[in-house]
Design a binder for these strands. Structure first.
Length: 107
DNA sequence: GAATTGACGCGGC
DNA sequence: GGCCGCGCCAATT
């Protein structure tokens, strides 16, 4: 019934759990969503997000501390960086952020 | 219905 | 520390 056969709702819920001013990797979100090892599914779920969704998708970055949104929309990457900086997250000269400082605990 | 791609992660060199 | 290859599942062609 309410399962809808899609675990994407779980992923969206996990992303919504990321506190402001912090970021999480695709693998972490997958783990929080109960999908260990399915980091790619997280990317698909966020890609399917509609413009205006109540999901802080900009707080999701790859394991390298960089933004992968550019692979889908080069313009979206700039928007993501803007939102992260607005939350107090600083980017390095290489366009990457400090995961050891902003990344959430695996749990 | 099969083959390919894709908002990734990790181990190995 | 950076680059290469494999694995994973879903959506698209």
């Amino acid at each position: 019934m309410h399962s809808s056969g899609s675990s994407y709702v779980q992923i969206y819920d996990a992303v919504c759990r990321i506190p402001e001013g912090c970021v999480a990797t695709y693998g972490d979100v997958a783990d929080m969503a109960g999908l260990p090892g399915r980091a790619r599914l997280v990317g698909y779920a966020l890609y399917a997000l509609e413009d205006g969704a109540a999901v802080p998708w900009h707080r999701v970055v790859n394991a390298r501390g960089a933004l992968s949104v550019g692979q889908a929309s080069p313009d979206a990457e700039r928007v993501q960086r803007r939102l992260l900086e607005a939350e107090g997250i600083e980017f390095g000269a290489d366009g990457r952020l400090d995961l050891r400082r902003y990344r959430l605990g695996p749990a």
